[in-house]
Design a protein around this nucleic acid. Structure first.
Length: 361
DNA sequence: GAGCCGTGGCC
DNA sequence: TGGCCAAGGCT
């Protein structure tokens, strides 16, 4: 039995690796094995498509080519480079982890599971990916692709949204992985999931590991993998103010250090509550939060924005500034239209900016 | 464990 | 059109 498993594993490795070397995409993070570049790519690729990541990867490495460069950069510049990519805590965790590597490991990315897993933003998948791809260590790197591929190959109906399922698949990979070429094995499994063993219409007819696939044999590949359905996003209604001062500068505000869109910039806004009119709520909010007296003008337009777990319905008002109080909000700034480009805004507020600034010209 | 955390593309 | 998905991790 044990011998059969080994023979089967060897044949699987051969089939997968042969296919991978003949069909792998030419991706910018596959040009060398620089652990820093591999690391950056793996963080960017979390829950994000390859085609989306590519331009960000180039720009990011252009600005922060080394661990040292990223370690000593301003967080605002790092967020600006991440602007539009989403899941912004990835950028802040990456910089924090890079600073840790710079200080505690003399700028060398550690090569053990234990050490690398302590770094912020590096979980079970990313640690295995860096160790195998950059350092050639036979560690499993189980992402959504791998879970789909293995669920089908083993015809397993385990729910892949459960943590236990991922751990089980890691055990399977540990026994199946090529010790000679763990990098190509892990990447090959992911590449197979991305190009052949796709979620909705897998190309089983050209699959290099079709002979090993229990789901294909039983013709149940379209039922797999099993995954719990997501809840639909909750809707929040916001009112937002576009305000210029006498110098033509615009009031912007930096979000909280934690939570949604942490430390990104936005136009002053508040979630609606109670019965009062939108303009009354906005007027009071601006007085209390920014110590300014205003006259709420016309409702300019609406912006809808859907996040993974919530949905914003934003009503934007044109606001006239009447007077400025003596106190000031520490996280707010008046900026010119030229300077605003230096600040990182979420896509929802980029929509607002584009509409309002175009209108102002 | 389950909810939080973005965005763009696809069918 | 909208629900689903994509090289997950943190709390």
């Amino acid at each position: 039995m044990q011998l059969e498993k080994q023979i089967s594993a060897k044949q699987f490795q051969l089939d997968l690796l042969t296919w991978f070397y003949g069909n792998k995409r030419d991706l910018p993070w596959r040009k060398d094995q620089d652990p820093y570049k591999i690391w950056v790519s793996e963080i960017m690729l979390q829950q994000t498509r390859v085609e989306t990541v590519i331009p960000f990867f180039h720009r990011f490495l252009d600005k922060f080519p080394t661990i040292e460069a990223l370690a000593y950069a301003d967080e605002g510049d790092v967020l600006k480079a991440w602007e539009g990519l989403g899941y912004y805590s990835r950028a802040r965790n990456l910089q924090a982890a890079v600073r840790e590597v710079q200080e505690q490991y003399q700028g060398i990315v550690p090569d053990t599971k234990e050490e690398i897993s302590k770094l912020k933003g590096v979980g079970p998948y990313t640690s295995g990916a860096i160790l195998s791809i950059a350092y050639g260590k036979p560690e499993p790197a189980v992402d959504g692709n791998v879970m789909r591929v293995i669920s089908r190959i083993t015809a397993s109906y385990d729910d892949i949204s459960k943590q236990k399922t991922r751990v089980n698949i890691e055990k399977i990979i540990s026994e199946l992985i090529s010790v000679e070429d763990p990098s190509a094995f892990n990447q090959g499994l992911m590449e197979l999931g991305a190009l052949i063993c796709t979620p909705t219409s897998p190309s089983c007819n050209v699959c290099p590991v079709q002979a090993h696939c229990a789901a294909f044999e039983q013709n149940v590949q379209l039922e797999l993998p099993v995954k719990a359905k997501k809840k639909q996003p909750k809707e929040k209604k916001l009112v937002c103010a576009f305000i210029r001062n006498e110098l033509g500068q615009v009031l912007i505000h930096q979000r909280m250090e934690t939570g949604l869109l942490a430390n990104l910039w936005e136009f002053p806004n508040i979630e609606l509550s109670g019965e009062a009119s939108l303009s009354d709520q906005l007027h009071l909010f601006l007085k209390m939060e920014y110590f300014i007296e205003t006259s709420i003008g016309d409702e300019i337009f609406h912006v809808e924005h859907v996040f993974s777990h919530l949905k914003w319905d934003v009503t934007i008002f044109e606001v006239e500034l009447l007077s400025v109080g003596e106190s000031q909000n520490e996280r707010a700034r008046w900026v010119t239209e030229g300077d605003i480009k230096a600040y990182a805004f979420p896509v929802s507020h980029q929509k607002i900016m584009k509409h309002c600034l175009l209108k102002g010209e």
